[in-house]
Design a protein around this nucleic acid. Structure first.
Length: 417
RNA sequence: GCGGGUGUAGCUCAGUUGGUUAGAGCGCCAGUUUGUGGCACUGGAGGUCGCCGGUUCAAAACCGGUCACUCGCCCCA
């Protein structure tokens, strides 16, 4: 075991892992483009206020999970723990509040200081979409539909259940919050230690406690859906009607409360039981208050993010890309010719490897192990004739071809496979 | 921050009640094949047994500490 290792909670993406990530990102990019989302990126670090102001002091993400640092100019910066705040900040910074609505897709690394475990890393990667501007419930439905399509295109939707809840608007949430606090205060002595602490800081979070006694108490607690005002009820009904019309299955989950403070109305998670304790594979909701919290105008928004590592574990990797052909010099005098042929083949669109080191046998062995299907061998006789020996490694046969027009001949044989 | 599990070759793992020079499979390198891969055979390289200390005539094994990884709690993607 080497002493040289990646920092805790980080890992290298070697080609096979990278291929799985690529597959997830490509699927999400294609699916979101069908809904009109355009790819963009924000910096991976921001002034710390970008995250601390909207996420709130009660959120675990900010209180204990962020990577903060001071740069040489004395600025206080934070590695992004999620990307929604950064996207909204970008909207405000670039004056795009005059160009609504905006539909953005992003993919990139996020950072949270946590104990790593299955499906959870300190540097992890997310794909996500943000739909900025519309307050209409159809926007909620559209981004959920987009999330479902990403999962379906990846072939994992049937292993996920869409959990959906409504947190209501600010008025409904406040009314419910006071009712819940009043109820739980009567049972405070029986609550778990964590929940006691949350009672004053972030009482809604007690709803998704997994503590057994907490769950018993919550059986008789006032319910969020009973405190939704008419506007909030209408919003939720419209979202679910659209999902039903679009053939998207969902499950009402009154205990689903997302961790970040700026959520309202729709909150949802696609959850799987195939990943151990980290079941949430894609989650999001509506965040109409976020822009104002950042000091911008009141602008509505809905979006979601999905963990690439978690999806990649569900999806598995494709085979790695292998060159179409290797061009082999049988003697030193053939090397420049081989190089010239390789460049010509690449110009024609083929992917070409030039194995180095050892004799022809070693080179053949190397490309065979790599899975290359064809070898073009050039030695003294071929130099004189302007030919190559084209060997088909899968069939085991070989023929002599002119160097001129070689690309077409190879393309032809690749087609026939 | 709190619990459980695991640390032996590049990888997956054996290693008996403590006992000579720590093993296997796969992988890697080389040869049988000096212009041709797979298959086979032969040989080779590669280990401070995570680290430090203790017990012992003797420790990969037993004890203590420590570090790392891993799975959970918390929270989330």
């Amino acid at each position: 075991m080497s002493r040289l290792r990646p920092a805790r909670g980080t890992s290298d993406l070697l080609p096979s892992a990278m291929a799985a990530h690529r597959k997830v990102i490509d699927a999400a990019r294609h699916a979101s483009a069908k809904y009109g989302f355009q790819e963009m990126a924000t910096p991976i670090f921001e002034f710390s206020e970008v995250f601390s102001r909207p996420l709130g002091d009660s959120s675990d993400v900010v209180t204990k999970e962020t990577y903060n640092f001071t740069d040489r100019g004395g600025e206080t910066l934070t590695l992004r723990p999620e990307n929604t705040a950064g996207v909204v900040r970008a909207m405000i910074s670039n004056g795009l509040t005059q160009s609504l609505p905006l539909k953005y897709f992003y993919a990139g690394p996020m950072f949270r200081y946590e104990r790593p475990q299955k499906g959870r890393m300190r540097q992890f990667h997310q794909i996500g979409i943000e739909y900025l501007g519309p307050f209409e419930p159809l926007a909620d439905a559209e981004i959920i539909a987009c999330g479902a399509r990403v999962l379906r295109d990846l072939g994992v939707l049937d292993r996920c259940v869409l959990h959906l809840n409504s947190l209501g608007d600010a008025e409904s949430r406040l009314a419910y919050r006071s009712a819940l606090v009043a109820f739980l205060s009567d049972h405070e002595a029986d609550l778990s230690a964590d929940s006691k602490a949350r009672l004053s800081v972030n009482p809604l979070r007690i709803l998704d406690s997994k503590d057994v006694r907490d769950c018993e108490i919550l059986q008789t607690a006032p319910r969020l859906q009973d405190h939704l005002n008419d506007a909030s009820k209408a919003h939720f009904t419209a979202v679910t009607a659209a999902l039903d019309a679009g053939g998207i299955g969902w499950k009402f989950d009154p205990l689903l409360v997302r961790g970040l403070d700026y959520y309202c109305h729709s909150a949802f998670e696609f959850i799987t039981d195939a990943l151990g304790a980290q079941g949430t594979v894609l989650g999001g909701g509506r965040y109409d208050g976020l822009s104002e919290m950042l000091g911008g105008p009141a602008i509505a928004g809905v979006g979601w993010a999905a963990g690439i590592e978690r999806l990649a574990m569900l999806v598995g990797a494709d085979d790695l890309a292998v060159p179409d052909i290797a061009v082999i010099a049988a003697e030193p005098a053939a090397e420049v010719i081989v190089f010239r042929i390789a460049e010509e083949l690449r110009t024609s669109g083929l992917s070409v490897d030039i194995p180095v080191g050892g004799n022809v046998g070693k080179k053949m062995k190397k490309i065979d192990r790599a899975g290359v299907g064809f070898a073009a061998i050039v030695g003294g006789a071929e130099i004189d004739d302007g030919t190559v020996q084209l060997r088909d490694l899968r069939e085991g046969n070989q023929e002599e071809l002119a160097q001129a027009g070689l690309a077409a001949a190879i393309a032809n044989r690749l087609q026939r496979r």
